[in-house]
Write a protein that binds this DNA or RNA. Structure first.
Lengths: 335, 335
DNA sequence: GGCGGAATCTGAATCGTTTCAGATCGGATG
DNA sequence: CATCCGATCTGAAACGATTCAGATTCCGCC
């Protein structure tokens, strides 16, 4: 049915070994043979079978990526960075969206393990350290995205979320805001608690007597941001915060939108808003959004590079790479 | 090194065939054997080797997706829809970003062909019909996303771009706009020319004497939108259009942003703006953006379903599914 | 012409799974 | 007790590429 290396060999009048050599080590083959093999490949329309290759080689040309939320532009940027790096080495990206669901996350890890991916990039939701250790024992390294491994047994590339939270809160305090609300959800996600912790430390250590309350959401989406905004608007005026630090830009944008539409709480006049990630839409928001920037494409590219280094040399010690976040001030906090 | 089905068989005291049956047809195996095999699998930490499976079966558990631009939320939504459908059938998604680069697109198609993917979902940039026909001949079906196949040899799921363009232009004309500018680029991309053609037909067939000019961009990104906005601002006031139809929301948002920051051309007062796709950030824009909505997740899910149907039954005739776009009016055209 | 060594080629063995024709076992039946 | 049948199990063959030890060819040189 399918054209195999054997058919090519027959047509070209050489052995299968020679065809394989033409494909993998052309220098070890005479020019005449290369010529004949290539033309046989051409006429037969031969396509290499990756499964067979992989079975023999014991390793695939694929890297797995498990993201928390593929629809979040932040992750899309990370993926793009990682993919560029992978493609430049001839590797493809297997893509999985856990959608903040531990079962899906687990399913993807299983799938990727069976596929014998070269390595695994993962922005974990649940606690996956044990799973990742097992993978590593089977020769599949992994790199955590945007998250530390507790015991340093897995490499990671992240942004200092605590520092980011601190930056955001300090910025608000400096602008004279005192009643800060942290809007966010998924407190089993480390980044979220870290961002909150950073904000809390900024508030506690400030000379200004600020307060920090938590306005919980069910997820970190635009819709949840909208509903958080509505809840703030329902409050008595005196109970409303004068600033919001949203756990990510999606929440912040949703919140912003609901406030702008309603019109009762002016941004930034009555309420300032800071987001996190600095996705490309933050600048184009109803009120251009102040945000804590993460170098997303750089994170993806760096993670991929580390991963492939470890795949090449399994004994290489793990590394924790931490980028520093950066506050990008825009109109949403300028009042 | 790795644990194989043979090791499991030895430990469980059965043959390899029985282990395989436990894995694939447990009903054909006695309860006692199932029990022993499973516990052997457990103690050895056996993981199925997908490459070997695939080699034998001649087909993988993977579907390829080639997107024009993974950072465009529209495609992210399409991917999410497709992925959901795939995951529910135990398939994984191989992800490729062509970034509107024919070479990259071609590379991904090659890669996916070698991987023997179950099928290919593709939002094509270049002309890939010939390639896709060849894939189909090799048993790999594909479905075009957001694009027709000229000769109906490949299935497709799309939105009627011409109708969408018409909707946008008609909406602007109804609001009293007469000097419409189409902002877009990549005129080798079919959707772009279709959207433009739709707009042109609306202008030509209108009772109002409107004009339509083209403001070309190099790509369809936020940055290109910003620079298009700047170019409009450089013009003499009387040469400026009173409405813009942007080929997608990224362009529209960038444009909007540059106009709002500058302040010389008020939206929607002096210039109305319509986008295309209705990504979730359109509603949260500086001026909430009127846009032509595509049902993105539905497109992805439908395409995946059609693809898997065709993978199951290669002789199934191809289908062209066309969804109707819908105009969502917001503040950017309400003046 | 004979020799040595480099260049080139060969083809069987291997990777781990699935498949399937045939073997085996345990009862039920006459 | 012989026979038969279904349930269950076995193990070799096959999938297609890579590898590598050994065979063959080629060339220059004495």
């Amino acid at each position: 049915m399918t054209v195999s290396i054997r058919d090519v060999a027959t047509l070209a009048g050489v052995s299968v070994g020679t065809v394989s050599n033409v494909l993998n080590r052309p220098d070890a083959v005479s020019a005449a043979s290369v010529e004949r093999v290539n033309s046989a490949i051409e006429t037969l329309g031969y396509v290499r079978n990756d499964a067979a290759r992989q079975l023999r080689a014991g390793v695939s040309t694929t890297v797995g990526f498990v993201a928390l939320d593929g629809r979040n532009p932040f992750f899309a940027d990370v993926v793009a960075g990682a993919e560029n790096e992978a493609t430049s080495r001839g590797l493809a990206l297997l893509h999985g969206n856990s959608d903040e669901d531990a079962a899906r996350e687990s399913l993807y890890i299983d799938l990727f393990e069976q596929q014998m991916v070269r390595g695994l990039l993962i922005a974990p939701f649940g606690d996956v350290t044990a799973r990742l250790k097992r993978l590593r024992a089977r020769g599949i390294p992994s790199v955590l995205i945007d998250r530390f491994s507790g015991d340093g047994s897995v490499s990671s590339v992240s942004v200092d979320s605590v520092a980011g939270g601190r930056l955001a809160a300090e910025h608000l305090l400096e602008r004279g805001r005192r009643r800060i609300a942290f809007v966010g959800g998924g407190f089993d996600i480390r980044q979220v608690t870290d961002r909150l912790a950073g904000a809390r430390s900024a508030v506690d250590n400030s000379e200004h007597a600020g307060t920090l309350e938590v306005v919980p959401t069910h997820a970190m989406t635009v819709d949840e941001g909208v509903s958080a905004g509505r809840r703030l608007l329902e409050r008595e005026r005196r109970d409303r915060p004068d600033a919001v630090f949203a756990a990510n830009d999606l929440l912040a944008l949703g919140l912003l939108q609901s406030l702008v539409v309603d019109g009762r709480m002016l941004v930034p006049h009555e309420i300032a808003v800071v987001g996190f990630d600095d996705i490309s839409f933050a600048a184009a928001a109803a009120v251009p959004l102040t945000s804590v920037r993460q170098p997303s494409a750089l994170i993806g590219g760096t993670a991929m590079r580390i991963l492939l280094d470890e795949a090449l040399d399994p004994d290489r010690p793990t590394r924790q790479t931490v980028f520093s976040p950066q506050l990008v001030a825009r109109a949403s906090t300028s009042g």
